[in-house]
Each structure stands twice: as C-alpha cells, then as structure tokens.
Design a protein around this nucleic acid. Structure first.
Lengths: 233, 233, 233, 233
DNA sequence: AATGAATGAGTGTTCATTCAT
DNA sequence: CATGAATGAACACTCATTCAT
C-alpha cells in the first residue's frame, strides 16, 4: 500500500513538474516576444530592461532570472533568426544540388523567399537582426556577444554565397562576383524592409501589418523579377 | 563731430559684428563636423554630449548655445543631407528634361551617383539619416522636428519618383511601378551602405574608410549594371 | 485493543518525530557550517543568501525556515564562539584555582590556547566575531541581537579579566592593570589573526589554510614567549 | 589704455582662477572627510555613494566628478595613510642609522608612535586601512585596486621589518624573527585600536573620542613597556 | 516541510541639461 | 559669450525576503 501511495505521489509530482516546465517555457516565450517588440521599437541601446519588464507584466529581477544580461536576452532573440536563415539557405543548397531549381527566377525567388520567411516568422526578430547593421547598435554590445554574432553571421553569409556559387555553376546565374551579389541581395532586402516598415509606421497601429504587407511584397517581387532577368545568361 | 565719431564707431562695431558672425558660423561648422563624426562612430544613443564637446574642443554649454538639445544637433546634421539629395535629383531631372541622359545605364548611374555623392559628402550625416529609417528612433524626436523631417523626406522621395517617371516617359526605363522602383533603389543603396559599413568596421580604425570604399563601390556598381540591364526595354 | 493500536501508533509516531528532529538538527548544522564558510570567505556584506543556499544544497526558503533573517544566521554563528571562549576561560580559571598552572608562560600559553582553540574549532565563526569588532557592522544588527551579543561579550571579557586577576594574585603575573592587559591580549590575537589571514589569502585557495597555519602559529608563539618573559615577576 | 584694461582683466581672471582652484581643493577635502567617516562607520561594502553624497551635501554625480569610482575614492583615502606610515618608518630608520635611538624602549616607543601618529592624523583613514585586514573588505575591491594597495602595503611592511632588523643589529633588540615581530606589532596595534574603538562606541557620540583616548593610550603604553622589557637583551 | 519563482528596494554609474560666474 | 561645476533622472544589475504550491 505504501508503494501504491508513493507511486500515486510520484505521478502527481510528475504532473506538477511538467506543468511547471510548461509555465517556465511559457514565461520565457512571453519575455522574448515582449523584448522583441521593445528592442524593435526602441533599438537595443534605447530599450530598457525596466520597459521590457513592465511590458511583459513582470518585475525586472524575474527577467534576470531567465536571461542573465540584457545582451543575453538580445542574443536569444537574434540567434534563432540567423539560424533560421541558415536553414533556409541549406534548403536551397540541397534543392540546387538535386537539380530541382530550374530557372534563374526560381532561384532568386527562393533566395528572397528565404529572407521573407525569416522575416515573416518573426518580423520583430528579423528587424532586430537587421538593426545590427546599424553601427551604434553593434558598438553597444559587449565584445563576446559581438563575436558570437559575427561568427554566426559569417557562417550564414558563407552559405548564402555558396548557394549563389552553385547557381553560377549550374548556369542559372551568369558569372558575377558572388561576394558582391550576396551583399547586394541582403542589403536590398533589409533596406527595403526597413523603408517599408517606416512608411507603414505612419498608419494607425492596427493597420500597420497589412499596410506593410501591401508595401513590402510588391517591391520585393519587383526586385526578384528585375534581378532574375539581369542575372539570367 | 558727435556724428562722425558715432559713424566711426558704427563702422568699428560693424566690423566686429561681422567677425563675430564669422566666428559664430565657424564654431557651428566645427560642432557639426565633430558631431557627425561622433554620431557616426557611436550612434545617436551612445554618443554623449561630453564626448562631442571634448572632440570639438569646446565646453558643453557652448554647444548648447548653438543647439538647443542633443536632438536638435542630430537633426541639424540630417536635414542638409536630405536637401543635398533633393538637389541631386533636381539636377538629374534637369538633365533629363534637357535630353542629356541618353541611356538606361546612364540614368541609373546618375541616380546612384546622387545617393553616393550625398554619402561621400557626409558619410556620418548620411548614416544618421539611414538610422532614422530604423526602429522608432524617429519617435524619440519631438513632434515638430519629426514633422519637419517627414516633410522634407517626402519631398525628396517625390522628386526621386518624378525622375524615374521621366525616365519611363523618355523610354529610358521600361514601364514599372515607380513607387516600387524608387523604394527598391533607395532601400538597396541604404541597405548595402549599412552592410558594408559594418563589415568594414571589423578593420582597425585607420583602414576603415579605404576598406569601406573597397567594399561599397563594386557592390553598388554591380547593382547599377544589373538593374540597368533589366530596366532597359 | 484500541489502546494497544494507539500505543503502537504512538511509538511509531515518536520514532518518526525523533528522526525528523534529527534531520532538522542535521540540516541546521549543515546550514551553519556552510554559512560559516561563506561568511568567512566573502564577509557579511558580500555573502549572499543565494550563495549560502546553493553551497548548502538547499533552497533559500528552507534556510529561512530555520533562520529568520541573514542577520540571525550570522549571529547564530557567532554566539557559540563566544560561549566556547567563555568555556575556555572557565577551564583556565578552574585550573588556576586548583593550583595546576605553575608558571607565567604556562598561563599565557593557556590564554592564547583558549583563543586559538576557538579559532581552530571554527575559523569562520571566529573571524565573524572579530568582524564585529570592526566598523559599525554591529549597528547594522537589530537592537535585540546587539544587546544579546554585547551581554555575552561582556561576560566573556569579564571572565578573561578574572583569570588574569587570579594570575596576579597567585604571583604568576606581575601587577598590571588587568583591563589593559586583557584588551592587549585579545587585540593582539585578533589583530594577528586578521593580518595573517589576509596574507595567506594571497595564495591559491587550496594552500590557504596551511599557509595560514605557517604564518599564524609562530607569530602567536613569539607573542606568548615575549609577554611571558615581561610579565613574570 | 586697452592694454591696461586687458591687464586688469588678466589679473581679475587670475584671481578668479585661484579662487576656483581653492574651492575645488576645498570640495575634494569635504568629500574625502565625509567618505572617511562613512567608510569608517559602515565599512567599504556597506557604505553607499548615495550616503556619502548626502552626508557631503552634494549630489552623487558631483562626487563622481572628482573620483572616478567608489574604489578610487576609497584608495584616495587609504593611500595617504600608508604613505604616512612609510614616512614614519623612514624617519625611525634615519634616526637609527644616525645612532640617535639608544634604548629598546625608545625604539619600541618610536614604532608605536609611528602607528599612533598615523592614527591620530586621520583616525578614520587609519581605521579604513585597518579595515583592509578584514577579508570581506578586500574582496569587495577590484583587482587593480587590490594590487595597488598590496604593493604599497608590502613596501611599508618591508620598511617596518628593516627598522626592526636595524634594531637587532644595533643590539637594541634581541635576536628574533623580524617577520614575526613586525606582524605581531602591527597586529597588536590594529587589534587594540579596533577593540577600544568599539568599546568607546558604547558612549554617546560626543564623548567618544575622549573615551577612546582614555582606553587606547594606556593599553598601547602597557604593550610598549612589556615588549620593550622582553625584547631588551 | 521544501521549493521554484517573484519582487521591492537599492547599488554604482552615466548623461543631458542647467547654473553661477 | 564661454565655461567649470552641479544635478535629476535613468539604467543595468543585485539581493534579502516572501509567495504559491
């Protein structure tokens, strides 16, 4: 009988443990979502932990329980985006190798799709990543964080260039300097997203994302089309 | 006699006044140049008035004599850049009207040249403008300045679109949505400048601008070339 | 029958109660030992309850179950030391009365032995006590605890003086002001322990206590010897 | 005439400059005095910059204008004391070399006098230095500060030992280990000062220093006398 | 009884801005 | 007009202490 009770208790505890685990995960997600919003709207330097805590309806120390520093929180936000990007490019690479991409426009569309997918999965996170392109934001980060980011960033860029290189080798893209092309594509996407975001800002809160959609998509599609045409042999 | 003396004095005073005026103008220029450098290298949030004052070899209150707030100083940096951009587009417009631009690639080159010129005249000021495109930096500004900026920005964009429209009308560019095209071009330029700036930042201080040059120019030239090809009829 | 069962249960409960009691005592000891270590190495102010809890492999609230505040925990560490000291002097007193101490040097050695024994039994606790001698650490404590400490301290000092007084009466020590002598001896011991502790602190963690031993003992022995010589009639 | 006015102005400015210089010096002294008091009464870790600022009737940033960090402020307080001590020993050394110290008791008295002088010149500063003997206080300081202090401390101890060595060589002190003796003397003095300070604490504010005097001096004199006797050949 | 989680109240430090001279 | 000095308001981060379970 003792055994049974014990077993009952164990089960009970196990259930509780799982719930706690879930709650914990939940809270982390809440914090991340909130931080994304705040970092996005204020930039890294201007965003304050106080503000994030307030917006997350938690106290500051609670946030520090889950993220060791402001930078840690920031990184936890940005790294998944970089990794998503990496995965995206890995997918394209794979399809290229298997010969599944059969035209210039399809390749370019895939590349922009990778960017867009990243952006759509986590618009805030993406913008926060793009924010890194701003000198001040980067210099506000500590040495370690900067290096960590730079490392991953380089890897991701490397894969991007390889995709383009493969495209050239398979005759989908005419011969151009892949470094320049990769930079151009990424710069174009980020620059356009930034521009359209700020334009959509001028709308009321609730219409923003639709407006952004309305502005962003056609501009990117135009870029795809034009570049595909120019890059085809 | 009283009159004469008075007149002499008046002339004397006038001379002094002019010198003071000159000195004043001089000092404002010094402050602006310094602020540009600091804002560029540190970003708005991390740049401190102390630092700017120190670098300008002036005391903080002196700076406040000429610029009411940090924000004011910041904006005084950006507006000339927008105006320079506007002038650039006005020049292209003029040449277009006079039929002096005879090919797609020349037109595109002129557009990017206008951007580049702006950037080269005042890299810091340009980046600072680009910064405005990010996050809610804008919302940190006062209402009046925000409107002033937005106003000028719109005017400049408007002129940019008109240039493209003229290009289409003159058969230099094939028919595309000018809104999208203008956004794409600007986004591309700003995005690439940001990206290359940050890449060059990984170098040592003194090699930065050469490195940036080395990275930026070919990427922009590639963009010119590709887009010219795609946009030609 | 009812009675018997009840009795059985009672015995059972009693056994459980005793085990719990033992566990409780056990836990208190664990906490105290850990706290001593931490307070010793970090000092009162820098030691954190988090750290103590972690080191004791218990959760913070558990510690608070046994000690109402950080201060309480701190004091629970010090009082036994004072009592140990008191017991030490009581022992010397006893031996003196029984005529068992037959020379100046033996008496002095006994006194320093009492101090040393205290220190060796609980180096952390002893230092913590010495800490009380510094700055207004004391005034940071609550009124009640302060009085309690002061009371015991006085009693202990009183006994120390009585020992010296007895020494004088028995002709082991030449006639000096016992107040001054008692203060001097205690000051000497505490001062030297502090000094040597900090010197040994410059070594790596693991060699510290040996190094301390190496520094402390001969210095104290020198003091014993010199003072014995001077205090002998 | 212009010249004269100018000259007058120059003089005027010079006077103002000097006054400002004086005021600056004044303020630094105010801050140091206040900090000494606070550090003394609370210990390094528990003393807050807020409290110091409040007590000095200045705002916190004003203090930071004169002292870069809390540690800097602390060091500025402690280093002069160490240097004073060093000077004191240098003086004794000099007198020893010139053969001006002619008995054991005079030498010991000189040594304790050096300590006492230090203490009397700046009781707070001295106690704050003595505070360093408390483990926690040291560990609260940064690496650099710790090294700086350790360095100077070592030098001072070195000189102390040399003085004792000279004493032995001149036959004023019988042959003992100078390391141990130096430690013992310093430990004794500091320990006694601490003890008597805390005892005098129990008086009302205004009687404290007299009480301390009343307690400290005779205890130290007793130590002098006893040790002189024991150390004479 | 034991604990994971939460938090109010500080910490040292910085910075835009304003006086007093 | 220029400036040395001053400061209110933040900011990232910490810690003793308390809930809720």
């Amino acid at each position: 009988m003792k055994n049974k009770t014990s077993s009952k208790n164990d089960i009970h505890r196990e259930i509780i443990r799982k719930r706690k685990e879930r709650e914990r995960e939940q809270r982390i997600q809440t914090i991340l979502k909130t931080a994304e919003r705040i970092f996005f709207s204020r930039g890294y330097a201007r965003a304050t932990m106080d503000e994030i805590a307030m917006a997350a309806e938690l106290s500051k120390p609670t946030i520090y329980q889950y993220f060791k520093t402001k930078e840690d929180l920031y990184l936890s936000l940005v790294i998944p985006v970089i990794e998503e990007l990496d995965r995206g490019f890995a997918g394209i690479e794979d399809r290229l190798i298997k010969g599944r991409i059969k035209s210039t426009v399809l390749l370019l569309r895939a590349v922009f799709k990778a960017y867009s997918h990243c952006y759509e999965t986590s618009p805030g996170g993406f913008m926060v990543l793009a924010l890194l392109q701003q000198t001040d934001q980067v210099s506000a980060l500590g040495e370690r964080t900067r290096t960590a980011l730079s490392e991953r960033g380089k890897r991701s860029f490397f894969r991007g260039r390889r995709v383009l290189q493969l495209g050239i080798e398979q005759g989908l893209i005419r011969k151009v300097d892949v470094y320049r092309l990769a930079d151009m594509l990424w710069g174009l996407f980020v620059g356009v997203v930034q521009l359209e975001t700020i334009k959509s800002r001028q709308r009321k809160e609730k219409d923003r994302s639709t407006e952004l959609e309305r502005l962003l998509k056609p501009t990117i599609r135009l870029a795809e089309e034009l570049l595909a045409q120019a890059l085809a042999k």
